Computed example of a mutant assay.
Amino acid sequence: MRVGVVFPQTEIGPEPAAIRTYATGVQDLGYDHILAYEHVVGADPEHYHGWTGPYDIHTQFHEAMVLFGYLAAITSVELVNGILILPQRQTVLVAKQAAEVDILTGGKYRMGVGVGWNPVEYEALGQKFSLRGKRIEEQIELLRRLWTEPNVTHVGTFDRITAAGINPPPVQRPIPIWMGADSPPAFRRAGRMADGWFPQMRPGPDLAAAKRIVDDAAREAGRDPDRIGMEGRIQYGPHGSDAVADEAFEWERLGATHICINTMGAKLPNLDEHLAALRAVWEKIGRLTRTPA
């Protein structure tokens, strides 16, 4: 099982030196990958009365693909979107950006995608929130073509390309596409289309039910469920590294191929404390890791 970390971008600050210190510190500890959330814009809760979203205009987010270009130059860990809100972005531009990140990392890039939850952001980026489920399915198929075919013609509901392609192509052909999933339609989509999925729940009955949906959808699509990766996310909390280790071993028992340790939201006061927490966790769960083939 490969073990990564969630980049604590809402707390780490905008200084490049802090980003470098965190990323190289994570690599030096032995973690396999850095996963980054994404939002392009935040909503102003004073305008949107009753706003209940977890992030707003006051929450800092680095742009994920630009961030990855920087991280690729200073680390050799795998870089992972967790997730990129694909339907609010231009498909061909995403394909080009992803190919570039894959090249800069030497093929150590994994694209996690999802439909998101914020209609304010969709409006700002010129896309329709109500069509995001349908759009992502067309986008995934088109992305894989753009990464593997030098010349693409495509006429779809949402995108049109006439005899065009991206160059240079990515190292991985195609780049692995993983899906964030927190509802039955998303579970089924992951089973039908994705190389892996990010469950949005902890081990327990809800996860077992979700995995059954993913596996059943994979079989119905003629795919082998055992070839679909699963990455659990573990929140670092008040019980510290012991609780994280217990949950990590439970994810291992359930067959997770990856886990990711999230120190964001743990009320850690500074960058040093984030790294100290990850150091304590690594000392307990480092044996779970294996060297990628």
Rank of each mutant, 00 (worst) to 15 (best):
residue 293 A to F: 15
residue 1 M to K: 05
residue 214 V to T: 15
residue 166 I to G: 00
residue 159 D to E: 14
residue 166 I to V: 09
residue 95 A to Y: 01
residue 187 F to H: 04
residue 214 V to C: 08
residue 264 M to K: 01
residue 181 A to G: 13
residue 91 T to M: 07
residue 16 P to C: 04
residue 123 E to N: 12
residue 218 A to Y: 02
residue 159 D to V: 12
residue 107 G to T: 12
residue 218 A to T: 04
residue 287 R to S: 15
residue 83 I to C: 11
residue 136 I to R: 07
residue 92 V to T: 12
residue 145 R to G: 08
residue 123 E to D: 04
residue 222 G to Q: 03
residue 228 I to W: 02
residue 72 A to F: 04
residue 121 E to H: 06
residue 250 E to D: 10
residue 254 L to R: 12
residue 189 R to T: 07
residue 7 F to I: 02
residue 39 H to E: 03
residue 262 N to A: 07
residue 47 H to I: 13
residue 147 W to G: 00
residue 281 V to G: 03
residue 263 T to N: 02
residue 151 N to K: 14
residue 128 K to I: 08
residue 148 T to C: 05
residue 227 R to E: 15
residue 124 A to C: 09
residue 287 R to E: 10
residue 121 E to P: 07
residue 279 R to H: 04
residue 207 L to W: 08
residue 259 I to F: 06
residue 237 G to H: 08
residue 27 Q to E: 09
residue 1 M to L: 14
residue 102 D to S: 13
residue 209 A to N: 09
residue 268 L to H: 09
residue 226 D to R: 14
residue 247 E to I: 09
residue 237 G to T: 14
residue 13 G to V: 01
residue 150 P to C: 06
residue 263 T to A: 07
residue 142 L to F: 14
residue 103 I to Y: 04
residue 224 D to G: 05
residue 211 K to N: 14
residue 131 L to F: 04
residue 181 A to D: 07
residue 29 L to T: 06
residue 89 R to L: 12
residue 192 R to H: 08
residue 255 G to V: 08
residue 217 A to Y: 00
residue 152 V to Y: 00
residue 274 H to P: 01
residue 156 G to Q: 09
residue 27 Q to F: 05
residue 193 M to K: 12
residue 198 F to C: 13
residue 154 H to P: 10
residue 265 G to T: 05
residue 254 L to W: 05
residue 31 Y to E: 00
residue 106 G to H: 04
residue 179 M to V: 09
residue 143 L to Y: 10
residue 18 A to V: 14
residue 52 T to M: 06
residue 276 A to M: 08
residue 163 A to Q: 11
residue 199 P to R: 02
residue 290 R to A: 09
residue 215 D to G: 00
residue 293 A to L: 12
residue 15 E to M: 07
residue 24 T to Q: 11
residue 285 I to T: 03
residue 4 G to S: 11
residue 97 Q to K: 07
residue 123 E to R: 15
residue 83 I to R: 15
residue 268 L to C: 02
residue 249 F to R: 15
residue 145 R to A: 13
residue 286 G to F: 00
residue 102 D to C: 12
residue 255 G to D: 05
residue 62 H to A: 12
residue 132 R to F: 13
residue 291 T to S: 13
residue 255 G to I: 04
residue 190 A to L: 02
residue 42 G to H: 02
residue 151 N to T: 13
residue 194 A to M: 03
residue 59 T to A: 11
residue 45 P to D: 03
residue 126 G to Y: 06
residue 293 A to N: 12
residue 287 R to P: 04
